Simulated assay, not measured.
Amino acid sequence: MEIKLHSFLTSNLLNKYLVGETSMKESKEVEYFIDNYPEVASAYEKLQDNLEIIAKAGAVDVPNNILQDILESLEDNNETKVIQLVQNKRISWYSYAATAAAVLFAVSTFFLYQKNQNLVDENNVVVEEIFDLRSDIDNNNSKLEELSRELMKLNDPDAKKYVINGNERAKNLKTVAYINPVEKTSMIDVITLPKLPKEQHYEIWAEMQDRMVNLGILDESNRKLKQIPYVEDALALSIKISTKGDSINQNNAAVAEISLKD
């Protein structure tokens, strides 16, 4: 339906309807959109206001020297002269008047055409702004839905919360893990991480009965809940400082850890 609305607003039917150039079928279509879509009604009202402004602008007096310039130009053109007759003055006067009227009409027509083009451009801008606003609303709704899903996971009665504080090597470190053994999901919320040299980073590990499992890198710049792999029968979680590119780091000393067993 939004595609159909966008197609209508960019079809120039509103402009034709405003100046009475639509067929009966087109008029019914325009009136249907005006009655059922606030965006179209708003655009139509704006076109009416702009048309009123144009009508007022078109009533501006023509500069006094335009007609005189036209007459002088015609008089200077010797090729248009004919044999003088008794009634020549009257005929020339009517010719000048007709020419001046034609020029004034052409100027007015061009002026109105330019204004109409400006209205069309402005109408298209309004349409684009409407759809940009709709897109922003959709994006915000999507983020709210995602946040709502995350909150539901946190508030699930089966989810367990584990606060992981740093030891002497990382006193300001604090993260919170949410583990749901029923849904088999794990999430980590990074609250604070002490800064490290560029070549180092924090990693979170799951301690098993016979091995350690790397669950990923922790980065304070991403301050939102982060999904981490769920590990069945994990005994504890620990956070370690590792050097980038070092594949042998599971034996590094932990700077924070917590048991997952009651």
Rank of each mutant, 00 (worst) to 15 (best):
L144P: 01
I204Y: 00
E146V: 15
P63I: 01
I54F: 12
I91R: 00
N118R: 06
L218G: 01
F110T: 09
A59D: 14
N249D: 12
P229R: 00
S27W: 00
K46Q: 11
T243M: 15
N139W: 08
P63K: 03
T109G: 13
I34M: 05
L9C: 12
S73Y: 13
V231C: 02
H6M: 13
N167I: 15
V86L: 11
K4P: 01
S221N: 10
V30Y: 02
E79R: 04
L47R: 01
D219S: 13
E257R: 11
E207H: 00
L151T: 14
H201S: 09
P157N: 13
V176A: 15
M212D: 08
K143F: 10
P157A: 14
Q200T: 10
Q68F: 11
V30I: 07
F111H: 05
E75M: 11
L5K: 06
Q87Y: 08
M187V: 07
K261S: 15
I66G: 02
K115P: 00
K198V: 15
N249T: 15
E257T: 08
M152N: 15
A97R: 03
D49T: 12
D233K: 10
V127R: 00
F33D: 00
A159H: 05
V103F: 07
A236Q: 04
F8K: 03
V60Y: 04
Q87K: 08
A97V: 12
K46L: 13
I3R: 04
K184C: 12
N12Y: 12
D219K: 07
G216N: 04
I179P: 05
D35N: 08
D49K: 04
S135V: 09
L154G: 06
I188G: 04
S73A: 15
L260E: 11
L225Q: 10
I239M: 07
N36H: 09
V231N: 02
L14Y: 04
K56F: 13
K244Q: 15
K160N: 14
K115M: 14
K226A: 03
K16F: 07
P194H: 06
E26L: 04
K16D: 13
K244H: 11
E168C: 05
A236I: 04
P181V: 15
L14C: 03
N165T: 14
L151M: 14
S135N: 06
H6P: 07
I217F: 05
